[in-house]
Design a protein around this nucleic acid. Structure first.
Lengths: 240, 240
DNA sequence: CGCTTGGTTGACCATGTTCAATGTTAGTGG
DNA sequence: CCACTAACATTGAACATGGTCAACCAAGCG
């Protein structure tokens, strides 16, 4: 939680380099992108639906949910974004937000001006490609999310989500492990298109079957293999 | 249905130009992209899950569904792609297919080699930007799809889908109109995460309320305003 | 403490599913 | 022009998954 680390784009560079080739100069361009720091309290929306935006939001710490909502205001979370992610990188291509962003816990955002990004991609095609690929990987996750919500029953759905987050948090969950996932059961409900009550029952089921224990923002994987099976999880779509 | 038109990338250029600025040279680059023609019969998959792909598929005519499937093989269609679309443009950045593509009716695909696309975007940043934006617009639709499947009831869900397709087909459906949408009720079920039986009942409801009539691959909009209301439809996310 | 947020429980209920039959349409060959 | 077929659409009855509502519990914090 050092201040210095929160304000660096190093995790962004690391992520880009994990899937795209960047020369030293290009890496420096990423690291030297100007940022404005924004601290967001838990449960606050920091990108509103319909808003036109002139910066991309990098998650330095905390957790953010990308969401849409129906006419009654009921939310569907369409993505969780962990530190290192840039939830609305796509805003660079489409500045009118059609999804909102909410902080699920206290979160530090680094706002990167579109202007600076545009300049970077204009001068360095490899940077453009890395960011484009980042957008595409996000979309691949979204497609699986739609599948999860549409065609899996509650137990499978929740298990799948836990598996995805375990891998994306880079938790060393090979046989078993624990990671911080600061969501409430209501957030899980919004992500899985269920009610909080049913999420609760489903989590109790997973606990009872000794697959995973989820409570107060922590996930404990009890049996990684059986959890993956229960969630029909195949990490291929995460490209890791 | 002239052969000449089926084999031209003009509709792709038109689409790109509708959202991105392209100079004359850049436009020519698009039009001169090499293609291989592929005719696909109805109900055939032409991009398999897990396959590694070396070309992007442009839809010249017909209709394609992008899909994922759960462990039992039940499909979730995550996007419909109409002529002019390029369903797996993202494969340029991520060549391992994590979604499949199926032809819903007899379809003509123009396969554009990644190699040619890579060369085009390497030489013309504006082309890269246009294609990147195309990917992002696709992802925006996907996010709404997840919302639709997750947080709307059956009637609203189907109505929303019909509205989306009406707009994307560019049907002049301002007060009322008809367009060809060659899907079966089973396809609609896979898209809306319902059963074919319930799709049938829902369509009958829409017909009974004189909102829309759907049958045998044709959609007749009876009351565009009320249909949009019923589907909670706001075209903003389509950026048109 | 008492308030607030989040988690747990129970009884009842509704939306949409399942399964299986029947109707309809368009296309094919005699 | 009609019989035959295959694919698609429609219907009904029983059922189940998950939703709703309302209460209660537990932990953290001023």
């Amino acid at each position: 939680m050092s201040v210095g680390r929160d304000f660096s784009l190093q995790p962004l560079l690391d992520k880009l380099k994990s899937h795209s080739k960047l020369a030293e100069t290009e890496s420096q361009v990423i690291l030297n992108l100007p940022v404005r720091v924004l601290e967001v309290q838990a449960h606050r929306d920091f990108v509103r639906l319909g808003e036109t935006v002139d910066h991309a939001c990098f998650v330095a710490s905390g957790l953010v949910g990308r969401f849409g909502q129906n006419a009654e205001g009921v939310r569907q979370i369409t993505a969780f974004h962990v530190p290192g992610d840039t939830p609305d990188l796509h805003s660079l291509m489409l500045p009118d937000a059609t999804s909102g962003l909410q902080a699920l816990t206290t979160t530090t955002i680094l706002k990167i001006p579109h202007e600076a990004l545009r300049s970077a991609i204009g001068r360095f095609p490899a940077v453009a490609e890395a960011l484009w690929r980042e957008c595409v990987m996000d979309a691949a996750i979204l497609a699986q999310w739609a599948l999860n919500v549409g065609r899996r029953d509650s137990k499978t759905r929740v298990a799948h989500l836990l598996c995805e987050m375990a891998v994306r948090y880079g938790a060393d969950v090979e046989p078993s492990g624990t990671f911080a996932f600061p969501v409430t059961q209501s957030h899980l409900a919004d992500a899985t298109a269920m009610t909080p009550v049913h999420v609760n029952r489903t989590l109790m089921g997973l606990r009872h079957n000794e697959l995973a224990r989820v409570s107060f923002g922590k996930v404990e994987i009890l049996d990684w293999n059986r959890l993956q099976e229960a969630g029909e999880f195949d990490r291929a779509y995460l490209a890791v």
